[in-house]
Design a protein around this nucleic acid. Structure first.
Lengths: 289, 289
DNA sequence: GTTCCGCATGAATCGATAG
DNA sequence: ACTATCGATTCATGCGGAA
């Protein structure tokens, strides 16, 4: 009889009253034990198909969808109705073609009941170098947003970005016509009341995120930079909410969640990464004290 | 009996020995008359799916794939085996979700025999403004590359880009460690020998293209900016090759082809656009004389 | 001639209102 | 209920006129 002990570590930040669970095990098994509608945000970068085969258990591209669908089904169950699921993924090239497992996955997740709300682009400033005769360097990845229902929590103000130049120059000297509503001269749609822009220095971002990868010297092959989960955690949760990463890796998602005063749960199947994540998370918790 | 006269205009640039055909009609009908394996590159931006029927031949999202597949089948036939097909497209949101017609199209085109070689991202710096409770502004579009076979013509040197500022500043003062191969400090794969960049001023681009839309205030409101077809024409054809745009619109693709000394063929179903295209193309031809 | 500044205009999307 | 139309929101850009 094969009894597997599940190892679980519950960390706690006294100051912020935030807890961070780290669980060693296969995420499908672990997820089944979680309560329905208990998670506010899922952010994860699952092992890519057949890549990093010496670090993560590589899954063959042709079998990727079958492998992942049972997991997304559990994720659908544990996510709150107002929550979001952000999936960082990119198809690799197989036999000279982009493989279709990502778009197959989207279609099948919709059959499970997920809504495919949006696709953000992560444009990597410093992408992997190289040269091939028939393609350029791949410098972007998909950030697929899925939801359970059309209405979900979104805190757009938390991720506003500095505005372009035009506003600064324009708002210096407001003319008289600018102070009142001005629909007459503009035919279509752009009814403007420029005066309300005064003092505003930030604009809403778009669905293209330009962020550099954290290449530097890390022992692990972690791909995404902290800014990435940070952006989505700020956008889709508020303080005290719970963030889940079913493929925790070295702990990035939990670390960021803690630094933003969100509760977190991370699941990791590899003992090495699990240990590393605990170490890194503890470091972060001690930092906040 | 409904006899439809097909109007065709053959333009010719004496100096460059380049011809540009512009054809009025439904592209499916016209394409059927073209020879097999006669086109080096297809670049087009078809009418996007639209529910409103009064706009440019609006096709309902749910019927978009069925409408487009017969056309892609003809495009497959007329393209040379070494040629490429660049499709500029982006799915709309329908009922709060991204519609699946684009990814359905990819899957169905592969069944026709197309290879889905690559997906470039057109990142639009100046996207349409707006604010909504559940999404940000959409600032990117897909540029799907399809091919008939794994080996195709690609002239990468033609689209090399100036090296970013990072290189210039970095190369000013090369440290001792930079002068030799330095794999140790950087984790995976970024084996670098920075000294070999000295004196080099151009680098290969990536699969993310950052270009602003050519909106407004231009005499001919081009759908996509000239840089876009120009980039792909330089990348996938050489002088004297033939470029096809089955949805010519105001003539942008042909104009760019002419300016780059490529032969071109454009098909347009709307008389207004056809006339406009001819006018614009003539202007371009006269410019080169 | 330069530089500066004002302005119209989008391959958009949501929610409310009307038929 | 279900669909068609309308109003509201937003910001980078290039042109043309002004300084």
């Amino acid at each position: 009889m094969n009894v597997q002990t599940i190892k679980k570590t519950n960390l706690f930040s006294q100051t912020a009253k935030i807890k961070s669970d780290v669980i060693l095990g296969d995420c499908f098994d672990i997820l089944k034990q979680l309560e329905d509608n208990s998670i506010d945000l899922i952010v994860t970068s699952p092992p890519y198909a057949d890549q990093r085969k010496d670090t993560y258990g590589g899954v063959h591209p042709d079998k990727y969808v079958d492998w992942f669908l049972p997991i997304t089904n559990e994720l659908l169950r544990v996510l709150k109705p107002t929550g979001s699921f952000i999936l960082n993924i990119k198809e690799k090239t197989v036999d000279g073609e982009r493989h279709t497992y990502v778009i197959d996955l989207i279609l099948n997740m919709r059959k499970q009941g997920w809504l495919w709300t949006e696709e953000f682009i992560w444009s990597k400033k410093n992408c992997f170098p190289g040269k091939w005769p028939n393609r350029f360097r791949d410098s972007w990845e998909r950030l697929l947003q899925f939801n359970k229902q059309k209405k979900f929590n979104m805190y757009q103000e938390a991720v506003m970005v500095p505005m372009g130049d035009w506003a600064k120059t324009r708002l210096k000297n407001l003319s008289a016509t600018d102070m009142k509503r001005d629909n007459s001269r503009v035919g279509s749609g752009f009814g403007k009341n420029v005066s309300k822009w005064v003092g505003r220095e930030k604009a809403y971002p778009t669905n293209v995120l330009a962020m550099a990868t954290e290449s530097s010297n890390k022992q692990h092959s972690a791909v995404f930079p902290k800014e990435l989960p940070a952006w989505f955690i700020k956008l889709f949760t508020k303080e005290g909410d719970t963030v889940l990463d079913p493929f925790l890796g070295s702990g990035t998602t939990s670390i960021v969640a803690i630094s933003l005063d969100r509760n977190s749960m991370g699941i990791e199947i590899k003992k090495d990464y699990y240990d590393l994540a605990i170490k890194n998370i503890n470091q972060e918790i001690n930092k906040t004290i």
